[in-house]
Write a protein that binds this DNA or RNA. Structure first.
Length: 496
RNA sequence: GCCGCCUUCGUCUAGCCCGGUUUAGGACGUCGGGUUCUCAUCCCGAAAAUCACCAGUUCAAAUCUGGUAGGCGGCACCA
């Protein structure tokens, strides 16, 4: 079946996708990208996207991680369509709140002898696995407890002997049609009976996922490639339970620069870290969308809404995609330049406060907006605003006097230039102190030197104390006459 | 080790299904130039993939077939 044929059966409103994160870590970009694709696919077909928190692993799941996942999905603009109502808003579904449901199915499997209690110890199992691996065999459960007689089982259970519930894995060929990869086939004979629950009230991932996807009428399971080998297990479970099967689509992995699955050791991977560094949600979205997908044309800039229109699983790549921070930076710089000065200032404010440059109570937004505007086109990340503009807030600049020298200017010449600057600037009236005027007065002087840099570079260097910065006239205007003169004097002292 | 998947410029990718229109296109990055005191923006330009490799089919293959290699992922009482 061609990709087109697969999709033409989808009627608007029928598509239902989900992401099912376990709250055992922060929202990382891999999960965020999976969420994005699920969201885009659902919206594209006017379907629904749901969030289901898979918190069955009680030891590792925490409310903090759940909060982080939810907050950052919202920050990205990836909103889900339904869930238990909490304060008039949709909360996520949580597996821990659906325990009775899994129990029902578990009991059914047990009653039909499609699952059984296993009393093997973890140590025993681990030793067996090691042995099998060493023999070059696929690690697989021996089936030791598969045929215990009912009386023994009852007795062990009554004694409280530690146990788990295993599903009888039929030995057969299981194949599914992956919407991205095509037909994928597995031999389940290599798998062995799998544990689907620790007990009736503690289901495990592969089992709970199957029940939930069915109960929630998920039509398309779009997830990372690392789940392909889970798929046959889930299909077997579906078959045993007589459940309808969703369509599967396995996304290529996001890779680090060494081409292995992106993880913490590659640097920043959680969405909150990117947020903290000053990346914009639209940049993240635009960037993540192009990790494994492309619109098939040469357009590169897409908003979430335009992605919804263009998105298609057919254009999803099969191979993994390296996370290229440089491209993210480019996109972020682009979106930063699109922001209004007011909005950008608002975004920068927390960084100024954190750097101790201003206080929350006494922030002069008017002033901040001026300096932020000056650096808008230079920003790649919001956090950079501090290193760019800190000189505006200092009383005394700390720089090497050599910074003042333009090319191979002589000391004498440099001294003369600084003197001249002081003289000219002092004469400008307070009310005429604006960049147009400053330029009108200083430019002709700069021209006279035959090389504008001879005047402009020392001026700019004296005012900013930096190799690179915004232009001297703009900076002087914002600094004001008093501070400007003061900095010229400081430069004078330095080269004396 | 076993199972599965993948393989076009440094990176993200277009093209592949329906062989010739491809001197393999775009973007990021890099380099050069213009604007410019610097940086950034903006504009122009360049380098950059013998399409993993080998064999086959064909008048013709990045595109079809087979094989090889490499890479990655998975192999839990995690999800």
């Amino acid at each position: 079946m061609s990709p087109e044929e697969q999709f033409k059966f989808i009627k608007p409103g029928e598509v239902r996708t989900r992401i099912a994160p376990s709250p055992t870590g922060f929202l990382h970009v891999g999960l965020a990208r999976t969420a994005l694709f699920n969201y885009l696919f659902a919206k594209k077909y006017e379907g629904s996207f749901v969030l289901r928190i898979e918190d069955t692993d009680l030891e590792r799941s925490t409310p903090e991680f759940e909060k982080d996942i939810i907050e950052n999905l919202k920050w990205l603009g990836i909103e889900w369509d339904e869930g238990p109502d909490t304060d008039g808003k949709y909360g996520p579904y949580r597996q821990t709140q659906r325990i009775d449901l899994y129990k029902k199915y578990l009991e059914k499997l047990l009653a039909e002898d499609k699952a059984y209690y296993c009393f093997c110890s973890e140590e025993e199992l681990e030793a067996q696995r090691q042995y099998q691996m060493s023999q070059g065999m696929a690690p697989k459960y021996s089936g030791k407890c598969a045929n215990l007689d009912k009386e023994t089982v009852k007795k062990y259970l009554a004694e409280g002997k530690p146990s788990v519930i295993r599903f009888r894995v039929a030995s057969k060929k299981v194949s599914f049609n992956d919407l991205i990869r095509g037909k994928v086939e597995f031999d389940t004979g290599l798998m062995g009976d799998m544990v689907i629950a620790k007990d009736l009230n503690t289901p495990l991932y592969n089992f709970a996922v199957v029940i939930d996807d069915f109960e929630m009428k998920i039509s398309h399971v779009i997830r990372g490639e690392d789940h392909v080998s889970n798929t046959p297990k889930q299909i077997l479970l579906q078959e045993a339970l007589g459940l309808t099967q969703p369509q599967y689509a396995h996304l290529p992995l996001i890779l680090g620069t060494d081409r292995t699955k992106l993880s913490k050791r590659h640097g920043a991977v959680s969405v909150s870290e990117f947020k903290k560094q000053g990346y914009l949600p639209e940049a993240m979205i635009n960037f993540m969308a192009f990790l494994g997908w492309n619109p098939g044309n040469e357009r590169e800039i897409y908003s979430l809404a335009s992605l919804v229109k263009e998105f298609s699983l057919e254009n999803v790549q099969k191979g993994g995609a390296v996370f290229n921070v440089k491209k993210l930076d480019f996109l972020n710089g682009f979106y930063l330049r699109q922001r209004s000065p007011e909005k950008l200032t608002e975004l920068c404010l927390p960084y100024f406060i954190e750097a101790g440059l201003v206080t929350k109570e006494k922030a002069d937004l008017n002033f901040l907006q001026k300096i932020v505007s000056l650096y808008q086109e230079r920003l790649k990340k919001i956090s950079e605003i501090i290193e760019f503009t800190d000189f505006f807030f200092k009383e005394v600049l700390n720089y090497d006097k050599e910074l003042l020298r333009w090319k191979d200017m002589e000391d004498k010449e440099l001294k003369d230039v600084i003197d001249k600057l002081e003289k000219i600037l002092s004469k400008i009236k307070e009310e005429d102190w604006n960049k147009e005027n400053l330029e009108n007065v200083l430019m002709p002087e700069a021209e006279k030197t035959g090389d504008r840099g001879k005047l402009l570079w020392p001026l700019r260097a004296a005012l900013t104390g930096k190799e690179a910065s915004a232009g001297p006239f703009e900076v002087a205007e914002i600094l004001g006459k008093e501070k400007t003169i003061k900095r010229i004097k400081q430069a004078k002292e330095l080269i004396k």
